[in-house]
C-alpha cells in the first residue's frame, strides 16, 4: 500500500500564461475592486434616482411649494397643478384593496401553514406564487373585459346590502375607484399569502404544542397563540402589499376611470398618481406640466419608501424572534 511518493515538478512560476488578472495577488485585489465598484454603482444609481426626481421637479416645487400636495385643481391649460385628487385616489384604492385582500390573504396563509398537509400546501403555494408572476398589464386586460362587466352585474346586490353607506351611492360607471380597488386586491393577494405563510411557518412548533397540550382546539391554538406570535410579520406583509398597491400602475390606469375628482363614492371614477403619470407624461407640454408630473412621481416614491421601510422593519423583527 505504501506507494512511493510522486515526484512533482516544481510549480511553474507563472500561474497561468498571459493572465494579468491572476498575477495581481492571485486576483484578489482586482476581484475586490470590480465587485465593490458594482456594489457602489447600485448606491450611486439609487442616489442619482432621488437626485433626478428632485432636480427635475424643481420648477413645480418652486411655483407651488407645499400647496401642491393640498390643491385639488389639475388644469394643464390654466397651468394649475395640485396632487390631492391623485393622492386621494391612490390611497382610497389601496385601502379598499387591503380591506378585501387582508382577510382573504391571512386566512389562506393560515390554511397553508397550519392546516393543509405539506404536499397540498406546497402545491397551492406554488400556484399562488405563479399568480404573483402575472404581469400587471394582464390583470388590467382582465379587469377591463371581465371584472368591470361583472361588477356592473352585481352592482344592484352591492347597493341593496351596502347602499346605506355614503361610499356606495351615486351612479355606478363600471370604471371606478371600486373596480381599481378590487383588481388591486387580487394583485396584492399573493404577496400577503406567501409572506404571511413564511412568517407563520417561522413560529416555533413548541408554541403550537404548548397550546394544544393545554386542551386548545386547532383553531384556538392558531388564533390565540400562533397568529399573535407572528402578528408583526403579518402586519409587515400587509404593509409590503400596501406599498405595491400604491405604486401599481397599469391595471389601475385601465379601470380607475381617469377623472381627477374627489368623490366620496367608490362607484365614481377617480385617478391615481401612477395612472396620471402613465397617461399624461408623454403628452405633457411645457416645463411646468412635466415638472408637476415628476413631482407626483417624487410624492409616490416617498410614500412607497416610507411604507416599505415600515414593512421591512416589522418582518425583520418577527422572523428574528422566531429564530431564537
Amino acid at each position: 500500500m505504501a506507494t512511493p511518493v510522486a515526484e512533482l515538478p516544481a510549480a511553474p512560476s507563472v500561474r497561468r500564461a498571459g493572465s494579468f488578472f491572476w498575477g495581481l495577488h492571485g486576483g484578489d485585489k482586482p476581484a475586490f475592486l470590480i465587485t465593490i465598484s458594482c456594489a457602489a454603482a447600485i448606491v450611486l444609481v439609487t442616489c442619482l434616482l432621488v437626485y433626478e426626481l428632485f432636480v427635475n421637479s424643481a420648477v413645480s416645487r418652486h411655483k407651488f411649494g407645499w400647496d401642491f400636495l393640498f390643491s385639488r385643481v389639475w388644469d394643464p391649460v390654466a397651468g394649475q397643478f395640485g396632487a390631492l385628487p391623485f393622492v386621494y385616489g391612490t390611497v382610497v384604492t389601496s385601502a379598499l384593496a387591503l380591506v378585501i385582500a387582508v382577510p382573504l390573504g391571512v386566512g389562506a396563509a393560515i390554511f397553508l401553514s397550519e392546516l393543509a398537509p405539506p404536499r397540498v400546501s406546497d402545491t397551492l403555494t406554488f400556484l399562488v406564487e405563479l399568480l404573483a408572476a402575472v404581469p400587471s398589464v394582464i390583470f388590467g386586460l382582465l379587469a377591463v373585459f371581465v371584472l368591470v362587466p361583472f361588477l356592473k352585474q352585481i352592482e344592484p346586490v352591492l347597493r341593496s346590502v351596502l347602499g346605506w353607506l355614503p361610499t356606495f351611492q351615486g351612479p355606478f360607471y363600471g370604471f371606478s375607484l371600486f373596480a381599481a380597488g378590487v383588481i388591486l386586491a387580487i394583485m396584492v393577494l399573493p404577496f400577503i399569502i406567501s409572506i404571511s405563510r413564511e412568517v407563520l411557518l417561522a413560529v416555533p412548533t413548541d408554541q403550537r404544542e404548548a397550546a394544544l397540550a393545554l386542551g386548545a382546539t386547532k383553531w384556538e391554538s392558531t388564533w390565540q397563540v400562533v397568529v399573535p406570535f407572528a402578528r408583526k410579520g403579518i402586519t409587515g406583509s400587509i404593509f409590503l402589499a400596501l406599498a405595491r398597491a400604491l405604486g401599481e400602475t397599469m391595471a389601475v390606469t385601465m379601470v380607475i376611470g381617469n377623472d381627477p375628482k374627489i368623490s366620496a363614492s367608490l362607484f365614481a371614477p377617480g385617478y391615481s398618481i401612477a395612472a396620471i403619470i402613465a397617461n399624461e407624461f408623454t403628452e405633457a407640454t411645457g416645463d411646468l406640466y412635466t415638472s408637476s408630473l415628476i413631482e407626483l412621481g417624487l410624492v409616490l416614491f416617498a410614500l412607497t419608501i416610507l411604507i416599505n421601510g415600515i414593512a421591512r422593519l416589522l418582518i425583520l423583527t418577527t422572523t428574528r424572534r422566531g429564530e431564537t
Binding site: 439609487t46 401612477a274 407624461f281
Partner: peptide, 18 residues
C-alpha cells in the same frame, strides 16, 4: 440602497430612465 431601489414603483423607474 438595494432594498430602496427594489421598492421604487416601476413608473418612477420609468421617469428616472426618461
Amino acid at each position: 440602497m438595494t432594498d430602496l431601489l427594489n421598492g421604487v414603483p416601476s413608473i418612477v423607474i420609468g421617469i428616472f430612465a426618461f
